[in-house]
């Protein structure tokens, strides 16, 4: 219970996995899940920092991240639904009209 570095390493690994997931997965919902994974990884780091420094500000920050993530998921999934409704596809690669 003295060194919290392993937690941070785990956080970094989860974050990187999430980032790679955003880059390689094509299903918009899975991409969204990977974004959530990244947010959760950063939350872990924040909680670890709270313990490291002995105050609760880190936990409050993690709390805010959760609230914002909840709002983001609601809007994001609604957007995915709308796109799916009009294009019959949930692939992020299909929405590629805005280009050169």
């Amino acid at each position: 219970m003295d060194d919290l570095t392993p937690y941070l390493v785990l956080s970094a690994i989860l974050f990187s996995i999430g980032a790679v997931g955003v880059l390689v997965r094509r299903n918009a919902i899975v991409v969204f899940m990977c974004v959530e994974l990244m947010l959760n990884a950063s939350n872990l780091a924040l909680v670890v920092f709270a313990k490291q420094h002995g105050n609760l500000e880190g936990q409050v920050a993690a709390f805010f991240v959760m609230v914002v993530a909840a709002a983001e998921v609601v809007v994001g999934l609604a957007i995915i639904m709308t796109i799916f409704r009009s294009r019959r596809s949930a692939s992020v690669d299909d929405a590629s009209l805005l280009k050169y």
Binding site: D3, F15, I17, V20, L23, A50, K51, G54
Partner: peptide, 30 residues
Amino acid sequence: AVVVGGAFAALVGVLLGQVTLGTAVGLEGA
């Protein structure tokens, strides 16, 4: 994606290796 993601993880790892957190204060007081 794998290369850049791996590079990111490796770099953060290096960064963590550079710092020494020391003993955590703990949240008993808070």
